[in-house]
């Protein structure tokens, strides 16, 4: 069989590709926001004085970081079903991705917390800032600023990892590709197009986070951080 590529035949399904890409971004956006919150809480929990809370957070982080996302998604999917709870594939996908990225965020945030010099916290105490003020201004915001590049590349990885959600029939980009290739018998062209779309999505996300970083952290702007 001679090699014959027919990209137009696949490209005419562009509305499907676009819808898939939009859903992928939507999945990534929800999981990023929830995962960032969840992960930050877990990172704070790991530093808790209660050894029960600290231990629970450590177990959560290690269990997630040492098992594949695919297994986690199936566990959430069938776990909820066995409890008699019926959710759409989208909700299950967001839940599984949130749990997953939360563990990685927790580990990154913990590194950020540990990098805060002890003296700054003592200085804040000396200036009679309240506990909440210290946490917000002296610990949390500077920590986020410090680990911002690591956090954002984790969120881009999350967007790519969301392709695994095609396995529980969430209609994101990879699922759309599977559907189109079984329809057109043009697997090679379909997956090349999808790969290009993912590269574009990850570049868009990175540029977006870079811009957001300039707005959120004026100090970074003065340092001239690379994209």
């Amino acid at each position: 069989m001679s090699l014959q590529l027919d990209f137009p035949a696949v490209l005419e399904r562009w509305p499907n590709f676009l819808a898939g890409a939009a859903l992928t971004l939507e999945l990534a956006a929800f999981a990023t926001v929830f995962g960032a919150l969840f992960g930050t809480l877990a990172a704070i929990g790991r530093g808790s004085r209660s050894s029960l809370i600290a231990g629970a957070c450590k177990v959560y982080v290690e269990a997630i970081r040492n098992t594949p996302l695919l297994v986690q998604i199936f566990l959430v999917y069938f776990g909820l079903a066995s409890l008699g709870l019926k959710f759409s594939a989208f909700i299950v996908a967001v839940a599984a991705l949130t749990i997953n990225v939360g563990a990685y965020t927790a580990e990154i945030m913990r590194a950020g917390f540990e990098a805060i010099p002890r003296g700054q916290i003592e200085a804040a105490e000396g200036l009679a800032l309240s506990r909440l003020q210290i946490y917000w201004h002296i610990i949390l915001l500077p920590a986020i600023e410090r680990v911002y590049p690591a956090l954002t590349s984790q969120f881009v990885l999350l967007m790519l990892a969301s392709s695994v959600c095609s396995q529980i029939s969430a209609e994101e980009l990879t699922a759309v590709a599977n559907y189109i290739q079984s329809d057109t018998y043009r697997a090679f062209e379909t997956y090349i197009i999808v790969a290009v779309l993912y590269v574009i999505l990850s570049l868009v996300m990175r540029a977006g986070f870079w811009g957001l970083g300039l707005v959120l952290f004026p100090r970074r702007r003065r340092l001239g951080t690379p994209l």
């Binding site: 069989m1 001679s2 090699l3 014959q4 590529l5 790519l160 990892a161 969301s162 392709s163 695994v164 095609s166 990879t174 590709a177 599977n178 290739q181 018998y185 043009r186 697997a187 090679f188 379909t190 997956y191 090349i192 999808v194 790969a195 993912y198 590269v199 999505l201 990850s202 570049l203």
Partner: peptide, 23 residues
């Protein structure tokens, strides 16, 4: 950049179904 911007799942599909489709 290309590989790090593509999910492994898509690379796998490309390697398995993609190569099969072009013979």
């Amino acid at each position: 950049q290309l590989i790090q911007g593509t999910p492994l799942l898509v690379i796998l599909f490309l390697g398995y179904f993609g190569l099969a489709a072009i013979g």
